[in-house]
Design a protein around this nucleic acid. Structure first.
Lengths: 210, 210
DNA sequence: TCCGTCAGTGAACGACTGTGCACTCAATAA
DNA sequence: TTATTGAGTGCACAGTCGTTCACTGACGGA
């Protein structure tokens, strides 16, 4: 592979190398713990060349958030499709879809879940925005359910954000048991229980203030 | 204040200064982001004297976890007392107790909630242990409720950990709205909704495997 | 009273950090 | 064919970092 290619392609390739190196380093460290110098070293360029691609490390962090958010939305779309094709219980389908996508994009999910609260100001804020956006998307899906037809928007968002938080907790559990199929099954079972418990409360809910 | 005092008292005072400086610096940064040197500077001693009190920064982190965990357990005890004295709905009492204790120990709660996932390996592990312990304590309380009498231990822990996660989310929401009483009331209302929704599912639950 | 303990000092180290600046030289546009 | 652009280079800078070592000097037990 990798003939010279065009100028823009070369630049894009380096940019990717920077992002990939960062994601790789983020396996054992938090975002605040990685330095511009080692990211560039991993990408095979000299430190000062970093600025041809990002204005700062925070800037790179924002790029990672956007990229990870894209993965998140793809996961939601996949879950929608899987649900539509199965006409069974949503919960197992959702958990299975999540598991598969976490395995396929571990770095993205790890980044989001870990830096959600503990990151740099800028990065944490960006993640919080993306997650709220994601929860809104989920809320739209939830609104289609009969039991949720007459819920207020506030309550619907409360539910969606609760589900997102539970899911992100599951993501971290999944990342902790990588390679242990039995443990992974246990994590999935727990995740389903959490969602089922919440789901059982839904029909009992008296929504206020539409 | 502060006559010389005894030798041990002086040492203890410096140790506290180190912990307090760390907690203060943790307001704007993650634990990984603070350095031994600035902690000692804030405490008014020279960097090398740090080692008279802690073997490493991670060691100091562990001390912070233990201290914060103590605050957490005090909060649970206070909630128990408040509940026993009120004979009303648990949820508003629990949320109010939590709010008060968060305000009284912001640094501890911020530390726990932020570093729960995003911290150093050692610190994150220690927090995870303490939170599991805390959830177990909560599970014992929950076991007294009629609806939960015949739940399996597994399911009880699942519920307790779900409640802990929800509460920690609320903690971070509370820390975000410091000083805005109206916003704080909104956060408390949302927290109550989350718990109420989960609580509504409980009587519907069919627990498996005792 | 004397003497050991030990919290705190201060200089020094080697390693690592982000960033400025002048540069090279191949891909591109004219 | 020539001129321009711009990704990547290499050196240098002023800081900060954790940790070492030999030290001081006041407290506290004998």
């Amino acid at each position: 592979m990798t003939e010279p290619a065009t100028r823009n392609e070369r630049k894009e390739r380096t940019r990717r190398a920077l992002l990939d190196t960062a994601l790789e380093l983020l396996t054992d460290r938090g975002f605040a713990g990685l330095s511009l110098r080692e990211v560039t070293k991993g990408a095979g360029i000299v430190p000062t060349a970093f600025y041809r691609h990002f204005a700062s490390m925070d800037d790179l962090g924002i790029a990672l958030v956007e990229e990870s958010a894209r993965t998140l939305h793809e996961t939601l779309r996949a879950a929608r499709r899987a649900h539509a094709a199965s006409d069974g219980d949503v919960i197992p389908v959702a958990v299975r879809t999540l598991t598969e996508h976490v395995r396929a994009h571990e770095a993205h999910f790890r980044f989001l879940a870990r830096q959600r609260y503990g990151g740099t100001d800028e990065v944490t804020r960006a993640i919080s925005v993306e997650l709220r956006l994601f929860a809104s998307g989920l809320a739209v899906d939830l609104a289609r359910y009969d039991y949720l037809r007459d819920w207020s928007n506030d309550d619907l968002h409360m539910l969606a954000e609760l589900v997102v938080t539970v899911m992100l907790g599951t993501v971290l559990d999944l990342l902790d048991v990588r390679g242990d199929g039995e443990a992974e099954a246990r994590v999935a079972a727990t995740a389903e229980k959490r969602l089922r418990l919440i789901g059982l409360g839904v029909p009992q809910w008296r929504s206020t203030e539409t």
